[in-house]
């Protein structure tokens, strides 16, 4: 960690801001949105309460504050692996930062997270021991690839960054990584159980 003499904890002063002001209630509301997002793949939800440093989106910040702590190694990919984000994550979530292979959570753009087969897909007897990818997207829209599977009544559409990697991930089921897609204050879920098809 880089030592910054301006704050007693060695963190950049701006790292102290942008967390949940009322963690118990804000994290509860945020989790409900994450639960609905993951249980209803392709639906887009709005979240609030986090103000993380660039390049993290509000939604990615909310996901980190709601799910990550000292027990969940987090991988910062690409531009997210900067001093401001490292300090903010350390101060507000306390998640140990790690390489992609050991991560329970990873955050970055789709390109920065490549190759996604470096992430944990769980063990055959413990498929829950798999990574959750928090993917920063330029936008989220109910258009593009067609999704079917658990949580989806018939079909839905979601603007995924690609389809081949998600189809390969689905072929590993019940193993595989799970994905949260973020853009601004919007978030959508794509669990490993979802079937993805190009239109």
């Amino acid at each position: 960690m880089t030592i910054n003499p301006q704050t007693p904890m060695g963190l950049a002063p701006e790292a102290l801001f942008g967390g949940f002001a009322e963690a118990p209630v804000q994290s509860a509301r945020a989790f409900r949105a994450l639960l609905e997002a993951m249980a209803r793949p392709g639906t887009i939800w709005q979240v609030e309460g986090a103000a993380p440093p660039a390049p993290l989106s509000i939604a990615a910040g909310v996901a980190i504050l709601t799910l990550c702590d000292g027990t969940t190694p987090l991988h910062l990919a690409g531009a997210a692996d900067c001093l401001a984000v490292r300090d903010w994550v350390t101060f507000h979530a306390g998640a140990p930062l790690c390489a992609a292979q050991g991560a329970m959570f990873a955050v970055g753009t789709w390109a920065e997270l490549m190759p996604v087969d470096q992430f944990r897909i769980g063990d055959p007897d413990y498929p829950d021991r798999a990574a959750t990818l928090i993917v920063e997207m330029p936008a989220l829209a109910p258009t593009g690839p067609r999704l079917t599977g658990p949580g989806i009544r018939e079909t839905v559409h979601l603007s995924l960054p690609e389809t081949a990697a998600f189809r390969a991930n689905r072929a590993l089921f019940p193993l595989g990584f799970d994905t949260l897609l973020c853009s601004g204050d919007q978030i959508a879920g794509l669990p490993r159980s979802t079937h993805v098809e190009d239109l």
């Binding site: 639960l35 993951m38 799910l67 990550c68 969940t72 829950d128 669990p191 159980s193």
Partner: peptide
């Protein structure tokens, strides 16, 4: 947080 993470993995599988 621990329970919430378990719920999300349960939903995914």
């Amino acid at each position: 947080r621990m329970i919430r993470r378990a719920i999300l993995k349960g939903v995914a599988v």
